[in-house]
C-alpha cells in the first residue's frame, strides 16, 4: 500500500525536518506521528532528540530525516526543508537551520522563557515579522484556536500543527489519519482528526 507520489519519492533524496519548541509542549508525540507516517510511506527514517535536563522548560529540538537511505541522525545548519515550531521565539532560534527556500510552520504562540519572566531579557514580540522576512514560505497557525474551535480539545494543538506541516509534504492524507488513529488516546481520535484537517486548511 504505497500511497506516495512516486515522483517525489525518487526526486527528493533526503528531506530534513526540525520540530522545535519548549520542553513539555508535546513536540515528541508530533515527531513520533511524523516518523510513523514516513515509515508507512516506505522511507528510511531517522529521528534524534535529547532527553534529560531540557525537559524542564528548556528549548527542545527533534530532528527528523527521511529518504532512501539516511546516515546522520542530525540535521546540519542551512539544510532544513521544513521547520515546525511550537513557539514563536523558538522558530527564530532554530532559523539558521533552514535552507534557502525552506518552509517554516509556526504556532502563533509565545511562551516566555525564564530570563524574560524575571525581567532580565526582552521577548522578540516581532518574531513573526522577522520570520516573514527570512523564510521563503511562512505558515502561521494559531494552534490553540484551531484546537478549541475546530476540534473542541485544547490538547490537539500539536496535531493541528502537524496538519499544517502535512499540507507542505507529499504524503497521502490517509496515511496521516491512520498513524494519528494509532498514536493518540482512543477517546481523542475524532478530535485529533478534526484538528489535523483544520490545521491543514487554516492558511
Amino acid at each position: 500500500m504505497l500511497l506516495l507520489k512516486l515522483g517525489v519519492r525518487f526526486l527528493a533524496k533526503v528531506t530534513n525536518v526540525l520540530l522545535v519548541g519548549v520542553g513539555g509542549q508535546g513536540t515528541l508525540l508530533a515527531a513520533r506521528i511524523l516518523s510513523g507516517v514516513l515509515q508507512q510511506g516506505g522511507y528510511d527514517v531517522k529521528m534524534s532528540e535529547v532527553h534529560g535536563m531540557s525537559q524542564r522548560g528548556g528549548s527542545v529540538v527533534t530532528f527528523v530525516r527521511y529518504g532512501d537511505r539516511i546516515y546522520s541522525p542530525l540535521v546540519e545548519k542551512g539544510t532544513a526543508d521544513l521547520i515546525l515550531s511550537f513557539e514563536k521565539m523558538e522558530a527564530l532560534r532554530w532559523l539558521p537551520y533552514l535552507k534557502p527556500g525552506g518552509t517554516v510552520v509556526v504556532n502563533d504562540f509565545a511562551l516566555l522563557p525564564a530570563p524574560v519572566l524575571m525581567g532580565k531579557a526582552e521577548y522578540p514580540y516581532n518574531a513573526l515579522e522577522i520570520l516573514k522576512e527570512q523564510a521563503e514560505t511562512l505558515i502561521v497557525l494559531d494552534a490553540a484556536k484551531v484546537a478549541m474551535e475546530e476540534a473542541g480539545n485544547i490538547r490537539t494543538q500539536n496535531v493541528a500543527l502537524l496538519g499544517a506541516l502535512a499540507s507542505h509534504m507529499d504524503i497521502d492524507t490517509e496515511i496521516w489519519q491512520q498513524v494519528i488513529r494509532e498514536s493518540v488516546p482512543p477517546k481523542t481520535v475524532e478530535a485529533n482528526l478534526k484538528a489535523f484537517a483544520a490545521g491543514g486548511q487554516q492558511h
Binding site: 539558521p96 530570563p115 522578540p124
Partner: peptide
C-alpha cells in the same frame, strides 16, 4: 561551510528551570 541564515535579533536563552 553550508550557507545559513544569519539573524541579528537577540534571542533570549531558554534555560531549563525548576518546575
Amino acid at each position: 561551510k553550508l550557507p545559513e541564515q544569519e539573524l541579528d535579533v537577540p534571542i533570549p536563552p531558554r534555560p531549563p528551570v525548576l518546575c
